[in-house]
Nucleic acid binder design. Structure first.
Lengths: 122, 122
DNA sequence: CCGAATCCGTGACGATACTG
DNA sequence: CAGTATCGTCACGGATTCGG
C-alpha cells in the first residue's frame, strides 16, 4: 500500500478532500457498517439503516459504487433483486467507520450529560 | 469504561445517532484533526482548515463545546483572542477521526481511478 | 483587527407518484 | 422490488456586516 504524503485533506484543492467528504457522513458510515456484515439486498439495507429514504440510499450506493467501495449485483428476476457488497477497498474502510459508530454508541451517555449541563448554564 | 449495548446508531430514534451525525462530517473531522496537535487559536484553526467559513467554524466549535469535546478559552484582549482545545473526551475521538483522514489520503489515487473508469463505462 | 452574528441562496434530503 | 422523477422544505454554508 503506497502512501502519498503530498495529499492532505486540510488543503482545500486536494482531491483527498472529496474522498473525505464522501466517507465522513452519517449515511455512508451506517451503510458501510451494515455491509460489513456481508452482501445485502437493497430492501434489507433500507430496513437496517432505519430512517433512510429510498432515494438517498440509491444515491449513496451509486456514489460508493463509483468510488469502487461497493459492487452492485443485479439479478434478472421478477420482482427484481439487487444486492450490494463491499469491495476489497470498501472493506479497508469498514474498520475506521465502524470505530466511529462504536465511539458514538460508547460515549453518548457522556455527550448527553454534557449537553444538558451546557444548556442549563446559558 | 462502561458500554451500552442497548444503544445502536442504526436505530432511528437512538440518541447515539445524533452523536454519529455530529462526528461523521467533514468539518468536524478536520477540526478535531487540527486540534489534535494542541490548543489552537480561532484564526489559526480557520487558516489550517482551508476553505471553512468563519460562520461554519464557529457553529461547529459551539456544537463540539456543547457535547464536551472541546473547551473554549476567551481572553479579554483587543484584538480578541479565543483558543480551543480538545477535552479528554475529545481526545478519545481524535484517533478514530484521524484514521478516517488518513484513509482518505491513502486511498484517493485508487478512488480517482475508480471514478474515471466508472464514468467512462456509461 | 479578530470573533461572531445576520442575511440569504443553494443543495441535500424526504415524500410521493410512477415505471420496468 | 428496485429504482427514477418531481417537487417542497429546510438546514447547511458562504458573503457580509457588526461588535469590541
Amino acid at each position: 500500500m503506497s502512501y502519498e504524503p503530498d495529499w492532505n485533506v486540510l488543503t482545500q484543492t486536494c482531491p483527498s478532500r472529496t474522498s473525505l467528504a464522501r466517507i465522513a457522513n452519517k449515511w455512508t458510515a451506517m451503510i458501510v457498517i451494515v455491509l460489513g456484515k456481508g452482501r445485502t439486498r437493497f430492501r434489507d439495507l433500507r430496513a437496517a439503516v432505519e430512517g433512510i429514504s429510498g432515494k438517498v440510499l440509491t444515491e449513496t450506493l451509486r456514489d460508493l459504487e463509483r468510488d469502487g467501495l461497493v459492487t452492485r449485483h443485479v439479478f434478472a428476476e421478477v420482482p427484481p433483486r439487487v444486492e450490494y457488497e463491499l469491495t476489497g477497498l470498501g472493506r479497508t474502510l469498514h474498520g475506521p467507520l465502524a470505530a466511529i459508530g462504536q465511539w458514538a454508541e460508547a460515549h453518548t451517555a457522556e455527550v448527553l450529560e454534557n449537553r444538558e449541563r451546557y444548556d442549563q448554564e446559558r
